[in-house]
Design a protein around this nucleic acid. Structure first.
Lengths: 182, 182
DNA sequence: TGAAATATGTCAACATGGCTGACATAAATA
DNA sequence: TATTTATGTCAGCCATGTTGACATATTTCA
């Protein structure tokens, strides 16, 4: 447990100033590089599992968001993933063909193909989310009581200001959908 | 300024327990998804600049680490990036041909090709690091005094235990090299 | 009702950046 | 001298992103 030696990093911090819009202090090297390494490890756990199913990261993203937002429209998914419909179409087709995702005609608007995970799809999605949650849970537990909140605040603040609201609403809505009003 | 509404998230937290190796609580959806969105935005700023130079993310990574660790061996770079020498070779060749990176014969071991950024290379590397630092600096400033430390601890803890030490040493060593002993 | 807009799908072609496998060269080392 | 090491390179494959063009069904609007 813990060869973590944080004190050795961050010689002289305080770059792009705590105050206003300072121009260009020394780059914040530690966070830049830690983000690279942390994100790489974060996505690597699912990658190993996905490989066994002949799926890649693209499939993971689709499966994840469909699992979290059952009944979402294709257009919504395109909006969340910010990829082209051709790129989405490729992986979505495989997920449907292999029985991980279903498409149902919209009730009001019959042009829509609402997306749902199948039982099989949910199992895989939850397995992958479980792996990532284990890593996150371990990390947060190592740090202390307010770690979750601190991490969330940091990550939210790293998102483009224009998208933050949308992202947070997406997350909150998915949470509500998953466990309906008590 | 601040459509950040953190309180709306995280209905019921405490998944993979604060204590030991609990098996499989509810996934930590917010962090999973925020990491996806935050990292996407984090790499998007450099992407736009790189596109103008006909470079991609792979070039960015190489340029970044060579800038941070002048004189590093090709083998070291392969180790950090965890890609094959063929993948590295492709982008490295372009960076050298275009005059962003130089290779010098090792003094002790003349088989080695030690890597250095040129003036041009440093300018670009610093510009990209500056963009990312602006985003990070803004985020940390928004949050509060201990944000940098909290973010660093979180990210370190997210890295595979076996690599943490190496990563932190890499960062610390690069910091020392950049501003030699006072 | 008929024209236009919308939601989705699909074909073709291309770029980037991973990968494997095989092989080449120069220099260090046993 | 024989072997190992550090690096480079050729050839080809795969995943996943892109653009552009076009097709189909359905809804909406004038």
């Amino acid at each position: 447990m813990a060869d973590i030696n944080i004190s050795s990093l961050s010689k002289r911090a305080m770059p792009t100033q705590t105050s206003g819009s300072a121009p260009a202090g020394e780059p914040i090297w530690d966070i830049i590089e830690l983000l690279f390494f942390a994100y790489r490890d974060f996505v690597s756990d699912p990658d190993d599992v996905l490989a066994k199913f002949n799926f890649g990261r693209a499939h993971h993203r689709v499966l994840h968001f469909v699992n979290r937002n059952p009944g979402m429209k294709v257009a919504d998914l395109l909006d969340v993933l910010k990829i082209t419909k051709q790129s989405l179409g490729r992986v979505l087709k495989q997920l449907v063909d292999d029985g991980y995702v279903e498409q149902k005609e919209g009730e009001n608007d019959r042009r829509q193909r609402l997306l749902y995970v199948t039982a099989k799809g949910e199992t895989l999605a939850m397995k992958l989310a479980g792996l990532q949650s284990e890593r996150i849970g371990r990390a947060l537990a190592e740090i202390g009581p307010h770690a979750h909140d601190a991490a969330r605040r940091f990550l939210v603040a790293m998102i483009d200001a224009e998208s933050r609201d949308g992202v947070q609403k997406l997350i909150a809505r998915a949470d509500r959908a998953r466990r309906p009003r008590p």
